[in-house]
Design a protein around this nucleic acid. Structure first.
Lengths: 348, 348
DNA sequence: CTGAAAGCGCTTACAG
DNA sequence: CTGAAAGCGCTTACAG
């Protein structure tokens, strides 16, 4: 039998009301009464039952974070920051993985989230279209992460994807690269990420008066390392292979770099590579990976800030907030021995 | 006002008892009654309140996973598998990060876990000693992950650390390496990982009749990439630098490889490198990283199996289960162009 | 096969 | 400053 508030009340000779007041640091409790209650709590080893508290208060202090796959470094790093941020605010985080499966994503947003008694949901959709997201009303506060805007009445936090992609490609153009490929287009699935980053890629080329060459845009079924490697291999088999490649995420870039190494090609001498996400892995490769670095900490902060605001009853129309990003230019575009190494060692 | 079971009962003209029976697929409910209740549920859009259910049943369906840091690939990959495994069993996972902070670890095990109304805890301690773990009785089922055995009455799942470390070093010896260094010793903090892997390192050398050279054992404050890079730099500054290095995890190895690259040294020609964990990152580097590969899926399965068993009331003394591991020999020890590439491309 | 009733362990207007 | 009482929304012996 667990010790209940009633037991404490009995021992301390007060009502449960007073025990509750002491436990929650409420109101004015007479110092002497407080001390007596404290002693009773201590003596009995009383622990409040959080479920009863949640049932009564209607708050669980839990938020759900739904994302494609935790084994992808970008999501792992983001989750780490969101959990830390949640902790600051006395929230606890449940993580669910969707594997980028649309059916699962729908289930999550309009069934599981309710079921798991969470107070709110931070959701990074992959397969769902804006329309589907708009239809899925979750009946609880939702903050969308990623490429969609504030659709379906949900708040949104992300970065300027088109602008970031454009910056990446302009970096390659600025380095004098002539045939700039892109890896990350998605044909089979609807992918907002692919659409926006391709738009940025095209915008950069067009602004520079360069042609957009369809054969240089490599499609991938997903955004994993092996997809990047396979796509790079295809690009290298072209009559005129590229001398630079913009990968829509870091994993694709790692795969591409691996494929280049297997072809005995040098990065960046033969092919410059730039990624997107700034996962820590890229900073410690040789060559280190140039990439678009979203401010993940700002992302985590903004998402929790918005979500907690809504949980606490904030009114107003859905907002879409863009956090900053910057271009991290490293060896995979600039060349070896560029500046200080990420390891903090001076380069030989 | 949320729709309650009572509302459904009223509309369907039955008692809450019957609604509960229908919702939970219980007992024998007359087909006709069932249909009527179903219709009422549909019409009102009724959703059971999980908190009330949990309060009543004493089960939340939540398990907590406490680990040092989700942004470390090994923990992210393991978490991903544990979440998937939990989902199979209709459990949901809360993740807490300890940052390897002993105080936080203690808090978690004997306070937060209770507070978060979880049914059980999977805990990967970093700073706590066996004694501290033994003292911290969590009052809820706990499965320990990692290097400690089944201490403090908790079940345990892990791999044979000494054997695995020994296998790694024997691999290097078998390749004819003469001066084999180790990176991962910990002087400042008590680290069971360091103790066990150092023991395996020594055992392998002694079994081969080799001396254990203290200056070749590099200590690190933590197990991150930069620690590995700094330690490698120190080893390279020795009068007689090593021709091989066993790193106690993959991150240290990545840092070491980065430092070697900055010193214009070749892996494995100048220095062979082997890690521990088999994170996916290592398979796509060039050279790819040789490493000890614990069977993470088996780890996730065994941990959940044990935990759910205890939650369901399994009796018996605490168990300590070792899951298999294998040595993944790749380019960082064998040399480039070894066998099939991890990217599935034939090496040129 | 189904109902009336108690109770899981809290919180919180309502009194005083 | 504190008590008596109702109630959060379920589940579950106890009856019938």
């Amino acid at each position: 039998m667990p010790v209940t508030m009633r037991d404490v009340a009995l021992l301390a000779g007060v009502s449960p009301r007073t025990v509750s007041n002491v436990v929650n640091d409420f109101a004015l409790v007479a110092p002497e009464t407080r001390a007596r209650v404290r002693r009773a709590i201590e003596e009995l080893g009383y622990r409040p039952n959080p479920m009863a508290k949640s049932l009564r208060s209607g708050r669980s202090g839990l938020v759900m974070l739904a994302l494609p796959d935790l084994s992808i470094a970008y999501f792992a790093e983001l989750s780490s920051l969101i959990i830390a941020e949640a902790r600051q605010r006395s929230y606890t985080v449940i993580i669910e993985q969707t594997d980028g499966d649309g059916v699962r994503e729908l289930e999550l947003i309009d069934r599981d989230a309710r079921r798991a008694f969470v107070d709110g949901l931070i959701f990074s959709p992959l397969a769902l279209s804006a329309e589907q997201l708009a239809d899925a009303s979750a009946a609880l506060p939702v903050v969308l992460l990623g490429e969609h805007g504030a659709v379906g009445g949900h708040d949104h936090v992300g970065i300027d994807n088109v602008g970031a992609a454009r910056a990446a490609v302009e970096h390659l153009i600025g380095l004098g690269r002539r045939r700039i490929a892109a890896i990350g287009q998605q044909d089979a699935v609807s992918s907002e990420t692919a659409v926006l980053r391709s738009a940025g890629y095209r915008a950069a080329l067009e602004a520079a008066g360069r042609p957009v060459v369809p054969e240089l845009i490599a499609s991938v079924p997903a955004y994993h390392r092996d997809d990047g490697a396979a796509a790079m291999a295809r690009l290298l088999a072209l009559d005129e292979p590229p001398d630079a490649v913009f990968c829509y995420n870091d994993l694709l870039a790692f795969g591409a770099m691996r494929a280049l190494a297997e072809h005995r090609l040098s990065v960046p001498d033969d092919v410059a590579v730039i990624g997107f996400d700034d996962s820590e892995e890229g900073r410690y490769r040789s060559p280190s990976l140039s990439t678009i670095a979203p401010d993940k900490k700002a992302l985590a902060f903004a998402a929790m800030e918005r979500l907690v605001g809504r949980i606490d009853g904030a009114e107003g129309p859905p907002t879409s907030q863009a956090v900053p990003f910057h271009l991290a230019a490293r060896e995979s575009t600039l060349g070896l021995g560029t500046g200080r190494s990420p390891a903090g060692l001076t380069t030989g």
